[in-house]
Amino acid sequence: MTFSKKSFYLFVLLLVSFFSSCDDKKENKDCSEIACMTPPEFFTFNIVDQSSGENLLYNGNLDINNLDITDQITKNSIDFEIIENNDMPLIAINSIGWKTEKVNAICSVGEEILFKLNIDAEAVSENCCSFTRYHTKEISVDIGTYELVDGIYVIKR
């Protein structure tokens, strides 16, 4: 069987095209030399008195030992920690967003609800990088208001 010159060039062009598309796919999957992983953001809360602005955890009006954060969907406790910022105790939640999840959390001290946190997080991996995409990030406060100041949710009660 003999090939014409035109058929030969067409065959070579198809062969090169096939191998180059395989190389492109291979390059997209090889992420060994790219180091990027962005952890999900922390959710940090400062609970303050509405009129004075005084931190209610610092002044003892809210008992840190009775603080609880519970996911209303799973009924599980949500890990949190008390961190200090300028000698003021803040509530920090850093366990949300590591996986795709929906969270409807209630932060309370005893029977008193301080705030509700609704999160719809998606763990995403694109272009060799992992990060969290938030579809919903809502805070609601039954008593008082809140504002976001320098990445900290200030709950005014």
Rank of each mutant, 00 (worst) to 15 (best):
S4F: 00
K6M: 04
K6D: 03
Y9W: 15
Y9D: 01
L13T: 05
L15C: 02
D24C: 08
D24Q: 03
K25S: 11
E27Y: 03
E27S: 07
D30A: 13
S32I: 09
S32D: 15
E33M: 14
I34S: 12
A35R: 12
C36R: 08
M37Y: 10
E41T: 13
T44C: 07
T44D: 01
I47R: 03
Q50C: 09
Q50R: 06
S51K: 14
S51H: 14
S52A: 10
E54Y: 09
E54C: 10
N55R: 00
L57G: 02
L57K: 07
Y58M: 12
Y58H: 14
I64M: 13
N65S: 13
D68C: 00
I69G: 01
T70Q: 05
D71E: 06
D71Q: 07
T74V: 07
N76E: 06
N76M: 08
I78L: 12
I78C: 08
I78M: 09
D79G: 12
F80S: 01
E81V: 02
I82H: 05
N85S: 04
N85T: 04
N85Y: 15
D87T: 12
D87G: 02
D87N: 08
L90T: 03
L90W: 04
L90C: 06
N94M: 09
S95E: 03
G97P: 07
W98V: 12
W98Y: 15
K99I: 06
K99H: 13
E101D: 14
E101W: 01
N104D: 11
I106N: 04
C107F: 02
V109M: 04
V109I: 13
G110S: 08
E111V: 14
E112F: 15
F115L: 04
K116V: 00
N118A: 15
I119S: 14
A121L: 12
E126Y: 12
C129Y: 08
T132E: 09
Y134V: 12
Y134Q: 14
H135N: 14
T136C: 09
K137A: 15
V141D: 12
V141G: 15
V141T: 05
D142N: 15
I143M: 02
G144C: 05
T145V: 00
Y146P: 03
V149H: 09
V149R: 09
V149M: 06
Y153N: 00
V154I: 10
I155S: 13
